[in-house]
Nucleic acid binder design. Structure first.
Lengths: 179, 179
DNA sequence: ATATAATATGCATAAAGTTGCATAGTCAAA
DNA sequence: TTTGACTATGCAACTTTATGCATATTATAT
């Protein structure tokens, strides 16, 4: 019952099709929540049944028809309820850390390689986040309340990447990939 | 196909029962992987069918009988295969950050309260991690390779808690809970 | 002409995870 | 003596997430 809320959050700004949502979950919102198009279409179906969305088929020139979804007042109410409800923490699951427990009896090279790859990915992601921050969230204190919220999510993303890059440094050094 | 590998990782050190595993997933290994006892018993059943474990019923004085599970060579091989295989990254899913996108049209107090609670939890967790580090992983460079791996997982946990505590500070200040 | 990429939606199945329920023995405290 | 806590295992139903397959239109490049 959480993908639906992420979808509704995206629909707050503007009406979107399943395809649009899939793209959005690949970018921006997707920094903190990911979903495949299959999952999105399934969830949209359920949300329609619950009356949280209203569909609108749009004919397009040069493209297949699409179905735009808009939040209904019931959907809005469900979203508001969720936001102020208790956040159940998902149990942190990190394959890489569990794998590290096994490094003594396996070839460590593949793991070291993965850590190096990750560091590069994090660096790219961090650059993107920093660009967004500079362009749109330069002075957080002056933002309206809703933009402050989005800024904080972005800030969490930035901190996460930075933290992880530093950890990769430590790991690569300790495992002898550098030294 | 990952809980099974976390279970086998725990069984590397010593034979354990489902109950033991549930406790372990509530501590130590559980810092990076969590599972309920129901899930563990289900998974153990599947792993037996696959021949990854061998069971051994142990009668106990003053306690119900328990079933100790040991890794078979097939299990060990499956674990080794997994460790050197590509790590598929789980999509980061953080309800709290998605909720932050909605802070403009809801009462912000519940969210602020949750951030404050989280910060306290993180502080407690961090203290625990630091204690473990001081006691068992004081000089990481001098550790054997397998203990280096465990240390790195611990280090990731420490960095994560520290990072999150700092973020909570920023969030609470920006949302006016302090200032 | 034909292949490829982008747009657009969906079904079926499987794996993973959650929640509620059920059972049963031992021990200590009230 | 009964209540609660700890040890110990498990089923059933459900939700959530993932994976593979399937289809159809249009635009662009070869």
């Amino acid at each position: 019952m959480a993908l639906s809320h992420a979808i509704m959050t995206a629909l707050l700004e503007e009406d979107l099709s399943g395809y649009d949502l899939a793209k959005k979950f690949d970018m921006s919102l997707g920094f903190f929540w990911q979903a495949s198009h299959q999952q999105i279409y399934q969830e949209l179906k359920k949300m329609l049944e619950r009356g949280w969305l209203s569909p609108d088929t749009v004919e397009q020139a040069g493209k297949p028809n699409k179905i735009l979804y808009a939040l209904t007042s019931e959907g809005k109410a469900a979203l508001d309820d969720w936001v102020v409800s208790e956040t159940k923490s998902r149990s942190a699951k990190e394959d890489l850390y569990v794998k590290l427990y096994n490094i003594g009896h396996c070839d460590p090279e593949p793991l070291i390689g993965e850590i190096a790859d990750r560091q590069l990915q994090c660096q790219r992601q961090l650059e993107l986040y920093l660009k967004i921050k500079d362009r749109h969230y330069g002075e957080p204190e002056t933002l309206a309340i809703n933009r402050k919220g989005i800024y904080l999510a972005l800030s969490a993303g930035i901190r996460q990447q930075q933290m992880h890059i530093e950890w990769c440094d430590e790991a690569l050094e300790l495992l002898g990939a550098i030294a």
